[in-house]
């Protein structure tokens, strides 16, 4: 991650206020996909906050990650409706098939999983998104198929 890129993000927040901490971290993550020690340091210097505080805040919220995202980012809905329709099985399936759990990235850097709150399409659950493309009424087999497709597209 380049230093001056972080600086550019920081420039969007002319006021040194702690209120800006979460938005700044969100911007950095949006840009880079994850947070790094470098980012923690820079933001700390800018907002005059100890690094431990920034790290503490960043680890509290589930959206922040310190691991790079996979090339294919899988979002799985864990809304109640999807759950009743079998979403939990899918999470287990992902673990079985890719060896990753919520918030993790596979060793080859290809896939990462994020379990998200309701995606808002309860009628068509279970729902998942892969790199922002939505898939509805997912079953375990269908999940495997979709993942295979992406895998193949890489080979």
């Amino acid at each position: 991650m380049e230093n001056n890129k972080i600086k550019k993000i920081l420039e969007r927040y002319p006021f040194v206020e702690r209120e800006n901490l979460i938005p700044i971290l969100q911007d950095i993550q949006y840009e880079y996909g994850h947070l790094t020690e470098e980012a923690v340091k820079e933001v700390g210097n800018y907002l005059e906050l100890p690094a431990s505080k920034i790290y503490s805040v960043a680890t509290f919220y589930s959206k922040f990650r310190f691991q790079p995202r996979g090339k294919f980012h899988l979002k799985l809905c864990r809304g109640t409706s999807c759950q009743i329709k079998g979403a939990e099985k899918l999470e287990k399936k992902v673990y079985k098939y890719l060896g990753i759990m919520n918030g993790e990235t596979s060793g080859d850097g290809m896939f990462s999983l994020e379990v998200v709150a309701c995606m808002g399409c309860c009628g068509l659950g279970p729902v998942m998104a892969l790199n922002n493309r939505y898939y509805t009424e997912i079953t375990e087999d269908k999940l495997e198929e979709i993942i295979d497709d992406y895998k193949e597209s890489e080979e």
Partner: peptide, 28 residues
């Protein structure tokens, strides 16, 4: 006011930790 220690994570995964979870000797 060294603020080395802070909570890390949340829920029952919360722990007291230094920034970036470094060993105390490598922290502030």
């Amino acid at each position: 006011s060294i603020t080395t220690l802070e909570f890390r994570g949340r829920g029952n995964n919360t722990s007291v930790s230094t920034a970036m979870n470094k060993g105390l000797n490598f922290s502030s």
